[in-house]
Every structure is written in C-alpha cells, then in structure tokens.
Nucleic acid binder design. Sequence first.
DNA 1: TACATCGGTTCAAATAATGAAACGCAAAAT
DNA 2: ATTTTGCGTTTCATTATTTGAACCGATGTA
Lengths: 288, 288
Amino acid sequence: MYYMLKATPNSVKLFMQSGDKASATKGVDTVTAGPSTVLKALTLLDFFNERRHSIGLSDFAKLSGYNKSTTLRFLTALESKGFVEQDEKTRLYNLGPAFLRFAQLREACFPVVDAVNTIARDLNTSTGETAHVSAVSGEWLVSVGVAESQKANRVIVEPGEPCPYHATASGLAYLAFATPGFVEAALGRELEAHTSDTLTNPRLIYEKLEAVRKTGISYSSGTYEEEVLGVAAPYFGPGGRICGAAAIALPAVRATDARMVIIEESIRTAAKRLTALHGGTYPEDFPY
Amino acid sequence: MYYMLKATPNSVKLFMQSGDKASATKGVDTVTAGPSTVLKALTLLDFFNERRHSIGLSDFAKLSGYNKSTTLRFLTALESKGFVEQDEKTRLYNLGPAFLRFAQLREACFPVVDAVNTIARDLNTSTGETAHVSAVSGEWLVSVGVAESQKANRVIVEPGEPCPYHATASGLAYLAFATPGFVEAALGRELEAHTSDTLTNPRLIYEKLEAVRKTGISYSSGTYEEEVLGVAAPYFGPGGRICGAAAIALPAVRATDARMVIIEESIRTAAKRLTALHGGTYPEDFPY
DNA sequence: TACATCGGTTCAAATAATGAAACGCAAAAT
DNA sequence: ATTTTGCGTTTCATTATTTGAACCGATGTA
C-alpha cells in the first residue's frame, strides 16, 4: 500500500492506493482546499472596496486568477441576480442592487444593527472617543456599528469597513479567542503592512494573542494607522463562540493613563452587553 | 440541414446540423435556459422573505427542487462567504451578515438611495399620500425609497418590498417599457392572485401594458391589496432603458378626480427627476 | 500602419457537480 | 419501550458542467 497525491488547480487530494483500486480516503487524509464553483464566483465580489468601485472583466480575471471565460460566466450569473450590474457604456461591473433588498430583509428579521449602534453610542459617550463594534462577515471582520468622537481631532471608522486581523485591536481580540484553524487561515496569507509599525510576522502576532487571552483586552498602537491607538474586547455568542469585538480608536496623544482606565472599563461593559444581546456566554477560561 | 434539440437537466440547446459539423448557433437559436451552478446557488437566497426568515436544509431542498446534498453544498458555500448563517442550535439558515458590508459599500460608491428617498419625500408632500420609488434588482422589482403618508388611513410600503409585475402599478409601468423577452419571462410564470381582482391572465395584462405605453402612466386598483389604488410612472436610464417606477399608493376612498390629477402630475415630475438622476433619457415614442 | 488590450465567444478535454442511498440522531407516534 | 418519521450530513460512481487556450472584432495607442 502506498499514498498518491493528486493535485488539480483547485484541490489537492491524497489517495490511498492499495491493491488495484484507488479510493479517495476522507477525513484526515483528503485536503480539499478547492473552493466550489459557487465559492469562486462569490469571491469575485470581495474585490470591490472603497477604492475600487468598478471593475472590468479583464481586471476581474487578473485579480482572481480565473480564466476570462470563467470570470465572465460568473459575472453574468451574478448580474442576473442583481449582485453586480454592468455599466452599459463603460462595460465595467459595479456592486448590484440586490444587496439593498437582502440587507433590508436581514435587518427586518434580525435588527441587531440598531442595538449595536446604541451600544457603540453609549461607549462613545462614556469615553468621548470614537467607538465601534465589529463582527465577522464571511472571512472578514467588519465594523457594523460606529459612534464617532465629537472632538475635532478624532479617528474615523466607516461602517462596513473591514478590520484586518493582524493590524487592529478588534482583529487581535477576535483572533485571540478564535479557533486555531481560523487563526492559521487569517495569519497564513500575506499580511499587509498598513504602517511601518504593523506586525507582519505571524510569530510576533501569536505572542500578542497569548497576552490578549490573559487580559481579555487587546491593544494596537499605530499598526493600522499612524498615531492611532486601538483598544478592544471580544464578545461572544452561544457556547462561548467568538462573535466580534467592541473597540475604541483614539489619537495616541490623548492616551493618558487615567483615560485608558476609563476606556478599558467602558469597553468591558460594552462587550458584556453585546454578549448578552447575542444570547452568548463567556468561555470558561475567560479572564473576567 | 436540420435542427437538433439537445436537452440536459439544466438547459435546452438548439443545434443546427449541416453536413458533418454540428455547431450550436447563438442568438435567436440557442435557448440556454440552464442556470449555471452559481445561479442555482444564488437562487436559494430568493426563498427568504418577510414571512420566512429562517429555512432548514430540507425545506430549501423542497423549495428549490435540488437534491439535498446539492443544497447543502450550496448553503455551506454561501455560509463561508457570510451570505447565510446557520443557527448553531436550530440548524436553520438565515440571511448572513455579508449583505451589511456590501450594501454599505454600494451606497458609499453610488449613493442613490438618499437621492431617491428625497424624491419620494417630495412626491409625498405634494400629494399627501404614500410615495415610493422602485427599481429592478435581479429579476425583481423592489421598492428602494419610501415616504409614507401622514394620514391615519394610509398604505404602507416597506423598503425592499418586492412589487409583483402583474399586480402593482409600478410593475405595470415597468413592464410596459421593458423588452419583450423580459415581459414574457415576468408573465410566463404562475401569476399569484393577491386579491380577487388580481389579473392572472397574461392576455389581459398585455392589453393593459398597451394602454400604459400610450399614456405613460399605469394604474392598479385593488389588484395587490383590497381597496388600494396605485398610480405609477416609469423612469429611465441611459439609452432609454427602463430602470424602475415612481408610484403613489392610496386608499381607494380618497381617489377623487381632482386629487388624481394632482397625483398624476406629481408622479410625472418625480419620474422625470429620477430619469435625470440616473443620467437617463426617455425613449423616442414616450408620450411625454 | 502596426500593435496592444479590451469584452466577449468557441469547443474539446477534464474536472467538479450531481443524486440515490445510507447513516446517525432526535423527536414524535405507536 | 419500541417503531416510525424526519432531520442534517456523508458517501461515491456517474456524467453533466466547468474550464481554458485560442480566437474574434472593436477600440485605443505608439
């Protein structure tokens, strides 16, 4: 008996060859890293962001690495359901109107955004600084509720803005209590250096996570934007599963010790409220 | 030379056989009714609505007609991108958080919703009745901007609510200027009778559309909800392509002739503003 | 004029989707 | 207590579907 590795463009499978009949063995052996067609198509949407509103066919193909025909088929499928729309003139694709409907439908069913926003607002009033609450959406951690500081010099966080796991306090708070597999996936890819202080070495980040697990609070100082300090605490869903984080972002110059004490305390209570809102419980070994 | 029909479970193609080489002829001939895998997966999302927030695997399979394994694969793909999320306890699927991000991103890029809402509000103040603006999203016409009447007895339209093509004034206004193929598709399926007055016979609807094309205004009286009158006018995008409709919905008892004159006029100007907003032009043969 | 790039199309080859059957489990019915 | 029913999930051979290199015509550029 011997093993055989069969690699296709989208998956790597380990076959166990014994006698005459090769059979794919499941479980520990089969490493199906291959995204299904559906997954690949949906991944196209991730290439949209604040800086890239409109994308052409060839750009999509380049960005994704898919063949042009494949990309086109995906896009037409997405278009027919309103997930993207094509500008008649420029032939570029934009995010489609379908999101409007589904977002409203989801809010109608699970009106968490409102509740989350009030928690963010309370967190803002008790600290005077920009507060935001983030949650996982697919593979990303995005801020869902924001309450900006009223001060002239303030940090701005856009609702819907993704929080890089490795570079933000929210991201670290999340990873510290995520499953090992998730952490590995999040830190396994190329880690973008948003500033000169961004940690891009996974080893250093693992150390940080260890510290966060001990205190239940995470910090980031200038790792996402220069001179900006982040403080965050995780909140949990049923069974102690990590859901997201409550966070404060403030200019580093205002970070006096006295203020930080208030901020940390406020974040903790906000995180507790969020955990309650989601019907969650804290994990066994959580520090508070 | 002869024709050959090749049917697969998911598509029907017409081949033109001439000589020795069979080649699928495109355009008028090839009827690719076959949804791609991606399309099928996305279709699952359409089963969510106001009354059905959570759907289980088997229900999805029944509703869609797909095999359970297939359905599960689709759902896990959708879940991994945050388009649905599975309740840990009940194992039911809900709409996911991804829509939050994309909806906000789209609004950040193309802030039409704001503008549309103000137009709806203006339409409401000039008529005193519930006004709403709809647009196509994928296959459906959904209301994107709403301004409710202040009167006690008012018609309520939810933002994001789909407007059935055959039963609402907005739907008729749209179909009247849509492509023949689109009309056929919209009226080809089973037409739900929302009230006893709903027209479910496509022939009758085609007649109505003819009338709408002449006047540029569509009406519905009690065809979507009893005792509710709808008035709508289409608005257009570049090249005279139909985009959606501006509409008023009011209790039938308030529909005096004098009021209707004002309403029609107001709707027309709202539609014109919407057409301008979308950088659109009216089709050649449009009545006004 | 030549050259590059764009969106889009084609079709045989190769892959990934499919679906019937079976499994384990829990709740409902007997 | 036992059987039945229905759920979500897994399996795996079959085959329908995706895939991608090459191609097309249009448009833009050196």
